[in-house]
Amino acid sequence: MHSLTIIRPDDWHLHLRDGAVLARTVPDTASQFGRAMIMPNLTPPIVDTRMAVAYKARLDAQKSSLIPLMTLYLTDHTSALEIQRAFDSGIVKAVKLYPAGATTNSAAGVTNIEHIYPAIEKLAELGMPLLVHGEVTDSHVDIFDREKGFIDQHLAPLLHRFPNLKCVFEHITTDDAAQFVAGASDLVAATVTPQHLLYNRNDLLVGGVKPHLYCLPVLKRNTHQQALQTAVSNDSKKFFLGTDSAPHAQGAKESACGCAGCYSSPAAIELYAQAFESFDALDKLEAFASLNGPDFYGLARNSDTITLTRRSWQIPSSLSFGDEVIIPLGAGETLNWKMEA
């Protein structure tokens, strides 16, 4: 195969940040994707509809072709009334659950699932999706076990209590999560990142810590990586593209306490193509990247296409990022597929 044409993909889990760096992140995303589900963990977080509307205006001011789909950041105090207001706005498409302390800018997240039952009940009533960062944050739980702990302690009981809740288990990293989603109702789906398909914890840790591969949830052992590859390459409609592209300047990554997040937007679809080819599933890429996501969210598929051509090229070693520099995921690596302009 020398070229591959697919319906234009969407990114169902994306961090764009704010301010001057939008001049980097928005065009990088728009060059490949039609729509993107925009994460709300800014500083301060996007906790109400008014803030979401203002953030969308700042994204639209970049004058790109990207259609941003906005989300709200759940807190212990998010009311059913605010959920209704977000739904009625037409621009807020989902609500994001961060357990407090689980990842970047999550300190204002949910401390107890029971605190958000009124908001969850309203989401289920409206058919509005709950997007879940699925990790427990208890200090005694090993970081490699936090996803499974969340399934057992929180997600399974939550979906049992609210069986009509539409839920996306974001950036899954384990066989446990893949099996849970596969066995759940059709209201439950998952996003999978390029880094969790391409790399495992050996890539992160062997020969020295690689800060630009550090993300949360952290990369797992190769058996979990293989389970994700199997999940996205079967015919299930439950798994779809969500890069979790999360930009941090080089200095913030290469520090005594490096930030979690991989910046994959500049070469996201090529990274996915590289991954899918590695496990002989290029014929499954379009469903994963372009069909399953909009179908789950009840949105029309994109009407245009993109073409990937087989040719070797190198991901840039660095990129400008406001007044600083950012190191993209796979910096300096050679990829086999290139998206044509």
Rank of each mutant, 00 (worst) to 15 (best):
P118A: 12
K96S: 02
V325I: 15
R58P: 00
A289E: 09
L16V: 13
F279P: 01
S185A: 09
D10R: 01
D145T: 02
V209S: 05
N336K: 10
Y117V: 02
P40C: 04
C215A: 05
V21C: 02
I7Q: 12
A182M: 14
V188F: 09
T243Q: 10
K166Q: 05
N41Q: 11
L216A: 12
N200T: 03
P45S: 10
C257E: 11
P217D: 11
E277V: 01
L216G: 00
Y214S: 01
R201Q: 09
I46L: 14
L97G: 03
K63L: 09
T103C: 09
L126G: 09
S139E: 15
Y263N: 06
D304N: 15
D152Y: 06
H160S: 14
S31T: 08
F279I: 06
T173W: 03
F276H: 09
V136K: 12
V325S: 12
L216S: 10
T191Q: 02
N105T: 04
F169R: 05
Y297S: 05
K63W: 02
T104P: 04
L205S: 02
A260I: 00
E286L: 02
R311H: 07
T43I: 13
M70Q: 03
Y263V: 06
D138S: 11
T71V: 01
A119N: 09
G34L: 07
A54R: 15
L123D: 01
K238E: 08
K220G: 03
L66Q: 01
D203A: 11
L165Y: 10
A260Y: 12
L319R: 11
V47A: 14
A256Q: 13
R310N: 08
H13C: 01
F169D: 07
E286G: 03
R35A: 00
L241A: 15
P157R: 09
E82S: 11
F33T: 00
I91D: 01
T5D: 02
A156K: 13
T307M: 12
D186Q: 15
S79V: 04
A252C: 05
I151F: 15
P157A: 08
S320T: 14
F239Q: 04
L158T: 05
T307K: 01
A281F: 07
N336Q: 12
